[in-house]
């Protein structure tokens, strides 16, 4: 076989780059959403369930209407509905938001699996990709550079969110509610309202991430489609120090790491793939250990975040 068609070892960086863009997008959307949620002082571990509901809803709507964009929107809406339930529940006095999140994972995945049974066989119209690899004649590069518009949407969201937190009045409200709810309340801000909006907006983004999974990459509805990505995105936010743009880099890193295992096997390195597959988690933990300190609160950490005392 000629070099024109096979990449050999070059396939590894190409796969990691492509994987970062392809596999990183759902992480990006979920972690951006979770970042907003956590900035307001609540954790939503239930995004795993939102991801599944989003994936199922998007696929089902796309199958029935033939319009993937309608599916995308429906997924976001479905995410918001679950987000609303979580917002109500997690803000009750004495209810822990981690527990509420796990209950939401069970409830969300139950609904997604229940109503998703009918949509495993049909094929849905997929979201289009934008070709950035037109300059190359090589199919691998063209495929790696075929990028879903949702990726750019995600990038725009994190930069907007950064600006939102730093320079807008509403961003200040969210940060105030997350850091010092009492002070925020004294300022006349509705803590309940701000948190509910933040959780619902975060769940909307996670719903879109679900749609990305079922309508773009891998582009299929199956019950195992999320594979813990919603949970990991929660860790990513901390990895990114509650910084929206940091979420972008963290997501690309995770997406790329996810592609590393299979890519190495495809060039013949095939031992210890369980440990290879766990490398993103080990890496995250290491980075946290190296950068955290018990002397002071992490920069950017919302003061009222229930999960961290």
């Amino acid at each position: 076989m000629t070099d024109a068609e096979s990449l050999g070892w070059w396939g590894v960086p190409i796969a990691v780059l492509g994987g970062a863009l392809r596999g990183g997008t759902p992480f990006l959307l979920v972690s951006a959403g979770e970042c907003l949620t956590e900035k307001s002082g609540k954790t939503n571990l239930g995004l795993e369930g939102v991801l599944l509901i989003g994936a199922m809803t998007a696929y089902a709507v796309s199958v029935n209407t033939g319009n993937p964009w309608a599916g995308l929107l429906a997924a976001g809406m479905a995410g918001m509905v679950l987000g609303f339930i979580h917002a109500v529940l997690a803000q009750q006095p004495k209810v822990n938001d981690i527990a509420a999140g796990i209950a939401m994972i069970i409830f969300g995945s139950g609904l997604a699996f229940f109503f998703g049974k009918a949509y495993i066989q049909p094929v849905a119209e997929q979201l289009p990709g934008i070709e950035f690899g037109w300059w190359s004649s090589h199919p691998a590069i063209r495929s790696a550079l075929r990028i879903c518009p949702l990726f750019f949407f995600g990038v725009a969201v994190v930069f907007l969110m950064q600006w939102f937190f730093e320079s807008t009045r509403w961003g200040l409200f969210v940060r105030a509610v997350g850091d010092k709810p009492d002070a925020a309340r004294a300022m006349g801000i509705s803590v309940w309202g701000v948190r509910t909006c933040s959780i619902m907006a975060g769940s909307f983004l996670a719903g879109l991430a679900g749609a990305y999974l079922s309508l773009y990459y891998p582009g299929s509805w199956t019950e195992k489609i999320s594979g813990g990505q919603g949970m990991i995105a929660v860790a990513l936010v901390i990895f990114a120090r509650w910084n929206p743009v940091g979420c972008l880099w963290a997501s690309l890193l995770f997406g790329g790491a996810q592609a590393l295992g299979p890519a190495l096997q495809s060039v013949g390195i095939s031992s210890y793939y369980y440990l290879f597959n766990a490398s993103p988690y080990i890496l995250t933990l290491l980075v946290m250990v190296l950068t955290c300190t018990n002397k002071k609160q992490l920069a950017g950490q919302p003061g009222a975040l229930g999960a961290s005392s």
Partner: peptide, 13 residues
């Protein structure tokens, strides 16, 4: 599924 898609992609590449 995600890993399977990733594997398929790297093989095709």
């Amino acid at each position: 599924p995600v890993k399977e898609a990733e594997a398929a992609t790297s093989l095709i590449d």
